[in-house]
Each structure stands twice: as structure tokens, then as C-alpha cells.
Design a protein around this nucleic acid. Structure first.
Length: 255
DNA sequence: CTACGTCCATCGGAACTTGT
DNA sequence: ACAAGTTCCGATGGACGTAG
């Protein structure tokens, strides 16, 4: 069916949580690159798998069998193997990506990162009060309420339990690397040679830096790859320091 | 008010299935 | 083995709403 835009939600959002269109949307988001990054599980396959009744919630993804997949049109030996491998790999994604994947309203990748830094595991997060949540820098009352409501809804609690059973990672990784980029804000544009965007973002975050998606006067560095877009122009205009991928690697001592 | 991030929309190019 | 037809990947830019 037609996808309803966010801006129209007040008038048109379907209130039935088990409406198939909503299930599909949630699963597509869950599997998407920035979230659990299950390669091969995009919009088309989600539609098919949900229509065939093979998937009803996130946890069903991890129960798919090769024999089920092979029955589907356009799903051959290679594709089904790739898909199952990709599903397996997604089980130990970093905590913040799992949080983002859950599809909590107002929790995008950035907010998920903040939450993952503030709590050691999902149980702590689930127990947090609205006040505790909104006290965290970067989280205001509206987002706090949304997070609180999500973790106090019966269906969501059951879903998280099922995800724990199939072996999804719900713990913060303990590694405390040297925060050599602390306080610095980066924006990445263009195509990089050695990394995907996602990898660079995670690298910066793990070194204590911040990642933004749009250039402003608070941006410290623009890492510029091949074929940059308008962000490069804006960085020049604002006098933001522009560095290449090589210069960035040198900066963090990886080269 | 200003800065910035967002369960987006959309596009070319890469990868895979299927019929010849 | 090859070409045609589909779907997915990786990225860009824009409109809107939230945080501070």
C-alpha cells in the first residue's frame, strides 16, 4: 500500500500495531543498513516474507530455514545462503545499532548512540524513569517519554525477550579506547576509498568524536571523499576545516 | 531563535535469478 | 555462458520538528 509520510501521521497513522503495512515498515527498518544491516533483506523480500506468513516480528527473521526460502520465487541457492549468513552476522551488532533497529519513535542513530553510552545493557535502559532519561544530555522530555512508553508496552517487552532468546546482543561493548577525537565534530561527504560511511562514523565515535550529518559552524572537520555534494560548498562557506581520507587516517594515527 | 538530526524520497550502479 | 529484468547498495539533498 501507500506509505504514509511522517508529516501526515497525526491524521493518517494507522493505530493498529499489527496492521501488515506497519509490520513491514518496522522490519524493513530493522534490517536496514544503519540498523542490523542484514544484506539481502530489503523492502521486496520483507513484503514477500510477511505476506507468506514467515515473519511476524523481528525475532522470526532469526528462525528462517533454508527450505522455506527456497520455495519462494526468485530465491535461489546463492541468495538464500547469502541471506542466512547475513542474518547470522547481524546477531552481534553493537548495542547502539540494536537500539536504533528497535524503531523507537524519535530514536534515530544519534540518539541510540547516546543511550548506548548511558546504559550498560537493555535491562538498565528498560528500568530508567522518564526523569532519568530526560536528564541525559541530548534527550528532552518528548524523546524521554517516547522511550519510556516503548519499554513499558507489553508487546515490546515480549519482543525484546524473544530477541534475547535468539541471541541478539543487548550489551554495551566494554572497550575504552583512547578518546583522541574527544570534543571534535565531524561530517563525512563523498565516497571514501577504504571505508563505507557507516564504518567511518563508528570509528570516529569509538575514538570519542562526534558525528553530524549536516555542516554547521560547529563542525570541526569535513572529511571529504570523491564526488562530494553540497556539503563541501557549505564547509568552504563556513570556513570549516576540510580534510581528505588520508589526512583523517593520519590524524588518528592509523597510517 | 538557531543548529542539527530524522522509522525519507530518490537515483545510478552493482549483484543476482532466470530464460535463452 | 550471456543478456535481460529486478532488487539492493551507497549516497545525496530537502523539509520538518526537536533540543538547547
Amino acid at each position: 500500500g501507500k506509505v504514509v509520510r511522517e508529516a501526515d501521521e497525526v491524521a493518517y497513522r494507522c493505530i493498529n500495531a499489527s496492521c501488515p503495512a506497519q509490520i513491514k515498515r518496522r522490519i524493513i527498518h530493522f534490517a536496514s543498513r544503519q540498523a542490523m544491516d542484514i544484506e539481502g533483506l530489503g523492502e521486496k523480500w520483507v513484503n514477500i516474507l510477511v505476506d507468506k506468513g514467515l515473519i511476524k516480528d523481528f525475532s522470526d527473521i532469526y528462525k528462517l530455514k533454508k527450505s522455506d526460502l527456497l520455495k519462494l520465487e526468485r530465491m535461489g541457492d546463492k541468495s538464500s545462503d547469502n541471506l542466512l549468513k547475513a542474518i547470522e552476522k547481524s546477531k552481534n551488532r553493537p548495542f547502539h545499532r540494536v537500539l536504533y533497529a528497535l524503531g523507537i519513535r524519535h530514536v534515530g542513530l544519534g540518539t541510540a548512540q547516546i543511550l548506548a553510552n548511558a546504559f550498560n545493557n537493555i535491562d538498565e535502559l528498560m528500568k530508567a524513569s522518564k526523569e532519568r532519561l530526560s536528564a541525559i544530555s541530548g534527550i528532552g522530555p518528548i524523546v524521554a517519554e517516547s522511550i519510556y512508553n516503548f519499554f513499558h508496552t507489553k508487546e515490546n517487552i515480549e519482543l525484546i525477550n524473544k530477541l534475547k532468546e535468539v541471541g541478539i546482543n543487548f550489551e554495551r561493548e566494554k572497550k575504552e579506547e583512547k578518546k583522541i577525537l574527544a570534543g571534535k565534530t565531524f561530517v563525512v561527504t563523498g565516497t571514501l576509498k577504504n571505508f563505507t560511511r557507516q564504518q567511518v562514523h563508528e570509528l570516529i565515535l569509538s575514538l570519542g568524536g562526534n558525528v553530524a550529518t549536516s555542516v554547521s559552524k560547529r563542525t570541526d572537520y569535513l572529511i571529504c571523499g570523491a564526488d562530494p555534494g553540497s556539503k563541501l560548498d557549505k564547509a568552504k562557506e563556513l570556513g570549516v576545516k576540510i580534510i581528505s581520507e588520508e589526512e583523517f587516517l593520519e590524524m588518528i594515527g592509523k597510517k
